[in-house]
Design a protein around this nucleic acid. Structure first.
Length: 230
DNA sequence: AAATCGATGCTCT
DNA sequence: GAGCATCGATTTT
């Protein structure tokens, strides 16, 4: 049987039903999809290759841990598909998407540049602290703040956007991508201070073998999985 | 290849 | 005042 072909003349923007699933499922389903950003007349696209779950409630690493709710983390409680963009370390941004479940969201950790890579490179340099640095393709999206720089995503322009209806930021199917990839599940990055129990939980997902993944886990790669893709 | 370390300002206590 | 869901440069195996 040949793989099912989807028609190209339909709106591939993913809708509310895609986002309205538990955090763990959304983090998995986002892999292989395209993150799309429109800047004026330019359309930037990158394939999502690495994600992390932040569950809220019991999750000590989550900014909504214990039901904590402030004006800053409000998007984590908004309807599934809402963008949650926050600044960290005073100079970098992280981009999350709220899922089903109170205070639950998925962090996008890495994208693989696909379309208008030259413009992404330009934004990457413009938003980078050090001037006139040259970037390889895999340095454009291999980290949560790097992808924000390359896609020109920040709190001011993108926080609280509804990805289901926004015409500047959304997710869509990648019709040209062979979705037959293997998925690696590993521990999350940069949260060691919350203690071993939650720091080690298997809540990070990435596409095995993709060159834009921010950090590989060779132990976990021995147990890669064929997870359902939607 | 891995470990270390400074930058830099917002958010919450 | 403390602590960052990071990055990039420098230093060490």
């Amino acid at each position: 049987m040949p793989p099912k072909k989807k028609p190209k003349n339909v709106d591939m923007k993913l809708n509310f039903d895609f986002y309205n699933v538990p955090c763990y499922n959304l983090a998995n389903f986002l892999l292989g999809k395209l993150l799309v950003r429109r800047i004026g007349d330019d359309i930037l696209k990158g394939r999502i290759v690495e994600t992390e779950c932040y569950l809220g409630g019991e999750d000590k690493a989550s900014r909504s841990f214990g039901g904590r709710r402030t004006t800053a983390n409000e998007p984590m409680y908004m309807q599934p598909g809402t963008a949650y963009v926050y600044m960290t370390y005073g100079m970098y941004h992280c981009f999350n998407i709220s899922s089903a479940g109170p205070g639950a969201a998925v962090l996008l950790r890495a994208i693989h540049p696909i379309e208008n890579i030259d413009i992404m490179t330009e934004f990457r340099g413009k938003n980078c602290k050090s001037k006139s640095k040259k970037f390889k393709i895999d340095e454009l999206g291999n980290g949560p703040s790097k992808l924000c720089m390359s896609m020109s995503i920040d709190k001011e322009t993108s926080n609280k956007l509804d990805l289901c209806t926004s015409d500047t930021l959304w997710i869509e199917e990648d019709l040209d991508y062979d979705n037959d990839f293997k998925t690696v599940i590993s521990s999350r990055i940069g949260i060691d201070s919350v203690g071993e129990e939650w720091a080690k939980k298997p809540l990070r997902f990435y596409i095995l073998g993709d060159s834009s993944v921010s950090k590989r886990d060779k132990q976990a790669e021995n147990q890669f999985l064929d997870l359902p893709k939607s």
